[in-house]
């Protein structure tokens, strides 16, 4: 999202109180921070971590959905799913490019994902067991992602905000195609409706967990709000998601698996039951049902593709050498 050829002039700044105060004033004035601007090291590190994790989530997210491309029930569904998975790949690339403007290389980020130092969204640690999961992912997971991403379009870091604007423009199709799959199943045979309900039962809690831990347990939350990297807290976004999704489930005639779920007139929001945070932390720490498979598959794709990258570079070098030799002959 930014001409990265201009980067490399990354100089250390001395983080005096005056410097930090001046930086905060720029943020408070809603000025965008661009790659070569002086910034506190913690701001840079937070963004590298967050954008990298976001990019990895897009790329890893291609796996559970890619799992169903060959088994999509019709050509229409297959074409749509293929396009969606391709979009996720594109989103990963916009985001990697945004992270690279902060002075981290694509190769470095890839290694961090493969050796477990970098995380990806907890939701992709779960399996996609039936076709209905593809519907539920589009509806709930992309729905939650949109909730998270719309405020990121106003993030203080320019390249991240610009990447998110592109992502958000494309994401709406993902949610709609998912909801349409759910609608078709919910109006289908009793077995099909049961499939849709089963997918909702399994993915509801993991979808709520996508917003991250409670605000009180969020390690980076407060500082990220202050720097306007985040605009809303995890709990605020989670509440918005619940409020938006409950009527959609009602329309489908499906039941959200939460006996505590009810409209709270006083708050003007839905109340919902507790989230299993033990499971969340287990998944985040690498103990999700599909964590090992996801990392293994990413590593395999990277290693299997190594010869292609090497061959392309060797071919480019050979063409350059030939062109140089031809130019030399012409000059003589």
């Amino acid at each position: 999202m930014y001409s990265q050829g201009l980067i490399g002039a990354h100089h250390e700044v001395e983080e005096t109180p005056e410097f930090l105060a001046a930086f905060q004033r720029r943020i408070d004035a809603e000025e965008k921070i661009e790659p070569n601007d002086p910034m506190p090291e913690a701001y840079r590190k937070t963004l590298i971590r967050q954008i990298g994790q976001h990019a990895h989530s897009e790329i890893v997210g291609m796996l559970p959905e890619g799992n169903w491309i060959t088994r999509a029930p019709s050509l229409r569904r297959k074409a749509a799913l293929l396009a969606k998975v391709q979009d996720e790949g594109g989103h990963g690339l916009y985001l990697y490019a945004a992270a690279e403007t902060l002075g981290v290389s694509r190769e470095e980020m890839t290694e961090q994902l493969h050796d477990g130092r970098a995380k990806f969204s907890s939701i992709f640690n779960y399996p996609t067991l039936s076709w209905a999961d593809i519907g539920a992912i589009g509806w709930l997971v992309d729905g939650a992602a949109i909730m998270n991403q719309i405020p990121l379009c106003r993030c203080s870091y320019g390249p991240y905000a610009r990447a998110m604007i592109r992502v958000c423009k494309e994401e709406s199709f993902h949610q709609r195609q998912g909801y349409e799959i759910m609608m078709t199943l919910a109006r289908g045979t009793p077995e099909q409706k049961a499939m849709a309900q089963d997918a909702l039962d399994r993915l509801w809690q993991p979808a709520l967990m996508m917003f991250g831990p409670h605000d009180s347990d969020s390690a980076h939350g407060e500082q990220s709000m202050k720097w306007k990297i985040k605009r809303f807290t995890n709990d605020e976004l989670r509440q918005r998601f619940v409020d938006a999704t409950v009527p959609q489930a009602e329309y489908l005639g499906l039941t959200i698996p939460d006996s505590d779920l009810k409209w709270n007139e006083e708050r003007g929001h839905y109340d919902f039951g507790p989230i299993d945070w033990n499971e969340f932390w287990r998944v985040v720490k690498g103990g999700g049902p599909m964590t090992r498979d996801r990392v293994r598959d990413r590593r395999k794709a990277w290693e299997d593709g190594a010869w292609v990258r090497e061959a392309a570079l060797a071919h480019a070098a050979k063409r350059r050498a030939r062109a140089a030799a031809a130019a030399k002959t012409a000059a003589e």
């Binding site: 930014y2 690339l93 490019a97 071919h315 063409r319």
Partner: peptide
Amino acid sequence: HVGSVHAAD
């Protein structure tokens, strides 16, 4: 300008 890509050539 819309962004960047990595490519061999």
